[in-house]
């Protein structure tokens, strides 16, 4: 069971001795170009089956969301030119081409901007999927990441509603594919990490929108990036899940977004779903004890 502490260190808290620095992803949505190379590289490396040939009509996103066979998902959000303001037109904040700044898709001519950001398992500091797993298939690694051991998972599915982000899911096909019926999600390329390699998505990202490294260092880099975006006039740039004091104790994989998390389909204030479990068990225990005591008292009372 996790403990709330001011500086959580999930690997050591789990009992790893001599654990390396906690590893994570910083996904910077301000430089994502929507190439989906992360999605393809992830599937190639991890041997994940194709999972759907539907045109979704969600801009250029035909992936839809994370799932058992989608461990990276690039969201495409078109923000229209007819946003209403007092003058009937609200110019949306654009990243302008300052000499030392990266530019982002956005055109003053049409007033539309096209947000793209690559989503992934958050590798929460307080991971509810891991808390509820009855078989121990979900594992906290020495890198502080959360991994499913597919040969231990029995497919019970408790982890699925436990995840506050809807990340983990059971693979439902296709027939003959590996691990059908088993809960699956991003491993932060646990196999590559143990060989001192960069996870496949970060390796494939051509713009360094996905940055991999020591979580402490990534957080510093991310705050610097937000500061420089703010200085360039992109006042809506904000970090998501970078705060160790948030409802999941901060994420191992956190994000720089250019709008509210809801715009990207992310929950604005996620809380680890097992946070209240101890209190609930205590309440249940008190209720149970009360019942027993009441029954005993009634028995004693009738006898007397």
């Amino acid at each position: 069971m996790w403990g709330w502490s001011s500086a959580p260190d999930p690997a050591r808290d789990t009992g790893w001795i001599n654990a390396p620095a906690r590893k994570g992803f910083f996904t910077d949505g301000s430089v994502c170009i929507g190439c989906k190379a992360c999605e393809v590289a992830c599937k190639e490396w991890n041997g994940i089956p194709e999972d759907g040939l539907q045109l979704l009509g969600m801009s250029y996103d035909n992936t839809g969301g994370l799932g058992a066979s989608t461990w990276r998902h690039v969201a495409f959000i078109e923000q229209p030119r007819r946003a209403v303001g007092s003058d009937g037109f609200t110019p949306l904040p654009m990243v302008t081409a300052a000499p030392d700044q990266n530019t982002h898709a956005g055109s003053a001519e049409t007033g539309i901007r096209w947000l793209m950001s690559s989503d992934v398992c958050k590798h929460c500091t307080h991971a509810a999927c891991l808390d509820v797993c009855p078989t121990g298939a979900l594992l906290r690694t020495e890198f502080g990441t959360v991994v499913v051991q597919d040969d231990v998972c029995n497919g019970c599915g408790y982890c699925i509603p436990a995840c506050p982000f809807g990340v983990i899911d059971r693979r439902d096909g296709p027939p003959g594919a590996r691990n059908v019926g088993i809960a699956q999600k991003c491993t932060l390329c646990y196999d590559r990490l143990r060989d001192d390699m960069t996870p496949a998505c970060a390796q494939a990202c051509p713009t360094q929108s996905i940055q991999f490294g020591d979580l402490d260092e990534l957080r510093i880099r991310a705050h610097d990036r937000v500061d420089s975006l703010h200085a360039a006039g992109v006042t809506d740039a904000r970090l998501y899940l970078a705060d160790p004091n948030d409802g999941i104790g901060g994420a191992g994989a956190f994000f720089l977004l250019l709008d509210e998390p809801e715009v990207y389909g992310l929950p604005p204030d996620p809380v680890v779903t097992t946070r209240d479990l101890p209190a609930m068990w205590r309440t249940a225990a008190i209720a149970g004890a009360t019942l027993v005591a009441g029954a005993a008292a009634a028995f004693v009372w009738t006898r007397s």
């Binding site: 393809v40 190639e44 089956p49 194709e50 759907g52 040939l53 045109l55 250029y60 035909n62």
Partner: peptide, 12 residues
């Protein structure tokens, strides 16, 4: 290629 076809599955 399944990994590319699923990303843009239909002519539009």
């Amino acid at each position: 290629s399944p990994y590319l076809a699923e990303l843009q599955p239909e002519f539009f």
